[in-house]
């Protein structure tokens, strides 16, 4: 499992290095995810240790978001000023994005049904 964790961290490290040296505005972890995916495709299987480590991390993904969310407290004044705009923007935009994406995907995946 430690080996699995090391593999994950190593992919992240490579990702961070790539992002820094190529000066691209994408988080290193996202590049790391692509690198790990490529490595898995080359290898053709997920080693047990890697799976244990990875699934263990994913299980607690929501917990990891909490500290960033607490950062809202720094902006309470800004939120108090623009709260109506923020709330309406979030609600409307989330609903619109959701509906458009879902319908688009549903349509595009079955072209034969669209012709009918």
């Amino acid at each position: 499992m430690l080996g699995g964790l090391l593999a994950i961290l190593f992919c992240q490290l490579l990702g961070e290095i790539l992002v820094l040296s190529l000066d691209i505005p994408v988080p290193g972890a996202v590049v790391g995810m692509l690198l790990l995916l490529i490595a898995l495709m080359v290898q053709g299987e997920v080693a047990t240790g890697l799976r244990t480590a990875g699934e263990g991390l994913l299980k607690y993904l929501p917990l990891m978001l909490v500290p960033s969310g607490v950062g809202l407290m720094v902006h309470l004044e800004l939120i108090a000023r623009d709260w109506l705009a923020i709330v309406l923007a979030l609600v409307l935009s989330t609903v619109v994005t959701f509906v458009v994406t879902a319908l688009l995907m549903e349509r595009l995946k079955k072209p034969e049904e669209r012709v009918k």
Binding site: I8, L9, Q12, P27, G32, M33, L36, L58, Y60, L61
Partner: peptide, 11 residues
Amino acid sequence: LMGPAIVALAI
């Protein structure tokens, strides 16, 4: 830990 968790999404 968010970083490694994002990498782990590859699995």
